[in-house]
Amino acid sequence: MITQVSAVNFRQNLGEMLNQVQYRNDSIVIHKDGKPVAALVDAELFARIRRMRERFDALSGRIAAAYADVPMEQGLAEIDAAVAAERKQP
């Protein structure tokens, strides 16, 4: 479950919200002036997110290296063509 709270409410109820995250595996989105500014998630989920980001960064680096010699216009055209072809599939 994802709970949305204001920063003031979060500060006032920190202990209870830590329990929500730790024991119920909830996530809490903290808003300031009506805008989301932070999220509190359990440590296991955070570790998974970090691993996924590391893998994504490594993959992005490999793709960037593979296309380093391709002119930007050509690369963008290839991406647009691939996206269009994928969207046409049922």
Results as ranks from 00 to 15, higher is better:
77 A>N: 10
55 R>K: 14
39 A>Q: 11
50 R>S: 10
11 R>E: 15
27 S>V: 08
77 A>R: 14
44 E>R: 15
73 E>I: 13
57 D>I: 05
85 A>M: 06
50 R>V: 14
89 Q>G: 03
6 S>H: 07
17 M>E: 10
50 R>H: 12
4 Q>N: 10
80 D>Q: 14
74 Q>C: 05
36 P>Y: 05
6 S>T: 13
64 A>H: 12
17 M>T: 09
27 S>Q: 15
63 I>K: 06
63 I>A: 11
21 V>N: 04
33 D>V: 00
71 P>Y: 04
70 V>R: 02
62 R>C: 00
6 S>C: 03
35 K>I: 05
8 V>N: 04
18 L>V: 11
50 R>W: 12
3 T>D: 02
55 R>W: 12
19 N>W: 07
18 L>G: 01
38 A>I: 01
59 L>M: 08
4 Q>E: 07
47 A>E: 14
4 Q>P: 00
73 E>H: 15
19 N>K: 06
19 N>S: 08
25 N>R: 12
89 Q>W: 07
37 V>F: 01
51 R>I: 05
57 D>Q: 11
33 D>A: 02
25 N>D: 09
22 Q>I: 06
13 N>G: 09
24 R>E: 12
69 D>E: 08
62 R>V: 01
90 P>E: 01
2 I>F: 10
19 N>T: 07
32 K>H: 12
24 R>H: 15
73 E>Y: 13
27 S>E: 13
63 I>D: 06
79 I>E: 13
20 Q>W: 14
83 V>D: 04
27 S>Y: 10
54 E>A: 09
6 S>V: 01
37 V>L: 00
13 N>M: 10
37 V>D: 00
41 V>M: 02
36 P>K: 08
49 I>K: 00
55 R>A: 12
56 F>T: 14
22 Q>E: 08
73 E>T: 15
59 L>D: 04
6 S>I: 01
74 Q>G: 00
63 I>L: 15
9 N>C: 03
66 A>N: 03
16 E>F: 08
55 R>M: 13
50 R>I: 11
61 G>I: 02
87 R>E: 13
47 A>M: 07
72 M>H: 08
57 D>V: 05
80 D>M: 09
35 K>L: 07
46 F>T: 04
88 K>P: 00
70 V>Q: 02
61 G>L: 03
6 S>Q: 05
79 I>F: 13
33 D>H: 04
88 K>M: 06
66 A>E: 08
48 R>P: 00
23 Y>W: 02
17 M>P: 03
50 R>E: 15
54 E>T: 11
23 Y>R: 04
69 D>Q: 08
69 D>Y: 03
60 S>W: 06
74 Q>A: 14
6 S>F: 05
15 G>V: 05
50 R>K: 14
53 R>D: 12
11 R>G: 07
49 I>T: 02
